[in-house]
Simulated scan of single mutants.
Amino acid sequence: MAEDYERISLVKPEVFIYQIPPRASNRAVRAADWNLESPDWKGRLRVVSMGEKCLVKLEDKISGELFAVCPVDNFPGIAVEPVSDSSRYFLLRLQDPSGQNAFVGLGFEDRGDAFDFNVSLQDHFKMVKKEQDLAVESSQPVEHKDYSLKAGQKIQINLGKKVLQKDEEEKSGPKQSLIGLSASGGLLPPPAGATPAPRTLQSAPAPAHNSQSTQSKSDDWGDFSVFDSSSKPKSSGEGSGWVQF
């Protein structure tokens, strides 16, 4: 990352700064010891990343004038330390241009703002760690492995019993039980030169006719004589082409 490139990862329009008493021992800091009802300063907070550096800037929320800066070299660490009795307050180490340090109390309006503050600092150092790991990997020489076959080296491939059995079945053709069946399921005609098997035909019994009914039909049509177009009419009174009674 370029050193002169500034990336803003968090902006909170209003935070509270408290003057705290000197720390007498290494015991945990409690926000209840501060005068929380009367903050000593109110303003805007920005978390800014510049390369591997991370800065917590306190600015005037109207003019944007810089009030104080907290350089964060590690989180959690001595630069930003959470208090023991609340998730909204932190112990902040400010640093002036001459390098002198001063510890103040930092407070947020609600827990959501304090959570965003935590996440922004954690994300910065995760990104720095990732870029450092990538730089180390790129600087290491890449090992090239030779996978080519050496002179006289052979490779054995086991195709398996099932694969060989399947190939033999495909070469031998379809099974005997399937011979003689067409695609539609019917029987195929015998091959050329084969003698078909004799078939026995059973004679169907002759249908029984009613002699009386046959005779009746013959009598009904016996009086009709069909006119022959080639014959001449018998008389002038008979119409040609019609049947005679």
Rank of each mutant, 00 (worst) to 15 (best):
V47Q: 02
Q153N: 01
L36C: 07
N35K: 13
L58Y: 14
E168R: 02
G160D: 01
P174A: 09
K161D: 14
E59K: 13
L134S: 12
H144A: 07
A114W: 01
P97N: 09
G43L: 01
A31W: 08
P97L: 10
V69R: 07
L121W: 02
S86W: 01
F103R: 07
E81M: 06
L164W: 03
V104D: 00
P76D: 01
V83C: 10
D113C: 03
K61R: 15
E81W: 09
G160A: 03
L36T: 09
C70N: 02
A151T: 08
F115T: 09
L164A: 02
E81L: 10
L55Y: 07
S139W: 00
A68Y: 02
Y89A: 07
S139N: 10
S98G: 05
D110K: 05
E81C: 09
V48I: 15
V119W: 00
N35V: 05
E109T: 04
E170L: 14
K145S: 06
V47E: 07
E65D: 14
G112Y: 12
L164F: 11
K175W: 08
L45S: 12
K161M: 04
G107F: 04
A151E: 15
L134R: 10
S172R: 13
G51Y: 04
F117T: 02
R111S: 12
N158L: 11
Q165R: 01
D33K: 07
F115E: 11
D110A: 05
K129H: 10
E170T: 09
D146I: 06
